[in-house]
Amino acid sequence: EVYKVKIKIERVLPNGEKVEEEITIEVEGMSEEELLALARELAAEPGVRIKEIEIEKLPP
């Protein structure tokens, strides 16, 4: 199964400015739980906050 994972994050820059970013990846052969863990890892940097995680199962 192939999933499209869209992660919206908010990053706080050293000057205090907040910037929103969106990361989209396609992943194959992982469960939804593994995808959530991967998304959290991607956003685990200091000053980064996850705003939204969207997981979509793509048709075969």
Rank of each mutant, 00 (worst) to 15 (best):
L13V: 03
E56S: 13
V19C: 07
K8D: 01
K51L: 14
I50Q: 00
L35Y: 05
E32A: 10
I55G: 01
P14D: 11
P60K: 03
P60V: 12
G47Q: 03
R11G: 00
E41I: 15
R49H: 13
R40M: 14
K51N: 05
A39V: 14
L36C: 06
L35H: 02
A44V: 10
V5Q: 00
V2N: 09
E41D: 13
A44N: 10
T24Y: 09
E28P: 09
E33P: 11
K8V: 10
K8T: 14
E28A: 10
R40H: 03
E54T: 14
E33R: 15
A39C: 07
E10Y: 13
I23R: 04
V12D: 08
E10F: 12
R11M: 03
I9D: 00
V19Q: 10
I55Q: 01
G47R: 03
L38W: 15
I50P: 00
G47A: 05
E17C: 13
E41Y: 14
E26K: 11
P60C: 07
K4R: 13
M30T: 04
I9K: 01
L13E: 03
I25C: 04
N15L: 03
K57D: 02
K6Q: 03
E41R: 15
V48H: 02
L58W: 12
K57V: 10
I55F: 10
I7G: 00
I25A: 02
V5G: 01
V2S: 07
V27P: 01
V12E: 11
P46T: 10
V19N: 04
P60W: 01
E33K: 07
V48C: 03
V12H: 08
A44W: 13
I55A: 02
V5L: 15
R40I: 06
P60D: 09
K6D: 01
E22P: 01
A39L: 10
E21H: 07
E33F: 15
V48A: 04
L42A: 05
V2T: 09
I9S: 01
E10P: 00
E45C: 13
E1G: 13
E32Q: 11
Y3W: 15
E52D: 14
V27C: 06
E21K: 03
V5C: 06
E33S: 15
L38I: 12
E20G: 03
L42M: 13
K18N: 08
P14L: 14
E52A: 11
E22I: 12
E32M: 13
E21Y: 14
E20H: 09
I53S: 00
G29V: 03
M30S: 06
P46I: 09
E56K: 11
V48S: 05
E1P: 09
L35D: 00
K8S: 08
E34T: 14
L38V: 05
I25R: 06
E45R: 15
R49D: 07
E21R: 07
I9W: 13
A39T: 06
I53E: 00
R49M: 08
V48E: 02
E22Q: 12
T24N: 06
G29L: 04
E28N: 10
K57M: 13
E56N: 07
E45W: 14
K51S: 06
K4M: 07
E10R: 02
A44F: 12
A37V: 13
E17S: 11
I55C: 04
E21N: 06
K57P: 05
E1R: 08
E34M: 14
A44D: 05
N15F: 04
G29H: 09
T24K: 08
T24W: 05
A37C: 10
G16C: 04
R40V: 06
V2R: 13
E33N: 13
M30H: 08
E22R: 05
K57F: 13
E33D: 12
P60F: 01
V5S: 00
E20A: 03
M30I: 11
V2Q: 04
E1I: 11
E52Q: 11
E1A: 13
A43N: 07
K6T: 05
K4V: 04
I55N: 01
I25S: 02
E1D: 08
E22L: 08
K4H: 05
K8I: 11
K51R: 12
E41P: 02
R49P: 01
V12C: 04
V12R: 07
K8H: 08
L58C: 06
A37S: 09
E41K: 15
V48D: 03
P60H: 11
I23Y: 11
A43R: 04
I23G: 00
I7R: 00
V5N: 00
E17V: 11
A43S: 13
V48F: 05
A39H: 03
P14C: 08
P46S: 11
V48K: 02
L35E: 00
I53W: 08
S31Q: 10
V12Q: 12
L13G: 07
S31G: 13
T24R: 03
K8W: 15
E52Y: 13
R11A: 01
E54M: 15
K8G: 02
E20W: 05
E1K: 08
P14H: 12
A39I: 08
A43K: 04
E17P: 02
L42R: 10
G47H: 08
K4Y: 05
V27I: 12
P14V: 07
R49Q: 09
E20F: 05
